[in-house]
Amino acid sequence: MQINKPTRVLLAKTGLDGHWRGVSLVARCLRDAGFEVIMIGMSQPDEILQAAIDEDPDLVGLSVGGHVDVVHRIIEGLQADRPELPIFVGGAVAPWAKRQIEDRGVEVYPPGSSLDDIAEAACRLTGVNDRARQNEPSV
């Protein structure tokens, strides 16, 4: 029998806007899909970078409630510290800002994205194959 380390996703809110609906739906969906979710809430860019080291996640999800330039700074920091660490972004990101983030090779999930698409992206980005999702309750 082989025991695998659970696949960990770090979720952070980049801004000081407290709306939690989007990020909490994503957290639940990832937990249902078998991921271990570390939710650090509203965090400063440096706090997110530190958590990405301390928590050793396999994926970082940024919930954006502010300006895209803050997201750029965080992505640059994460990519400098751990170039192999995949990142995805969600939230009310305007199309012009979405294009900028996607130009960095980071996927963006705007309002209305389906939970299945988000869970699948998490599996794909972390290299978890469908085997890990077998216990997922069907939705």
Binding site: L16, Q44, V70
Partner: peptide
């Protein structure tokens, strides 16, 4: 300090 950490967000909404 919480605001200074993300100056770019200021005035967005």
């Amino acid at each position: 300090p919480e605001v200074v950490a993300r100056k770019e967000d200021i005035g967005l909404n």
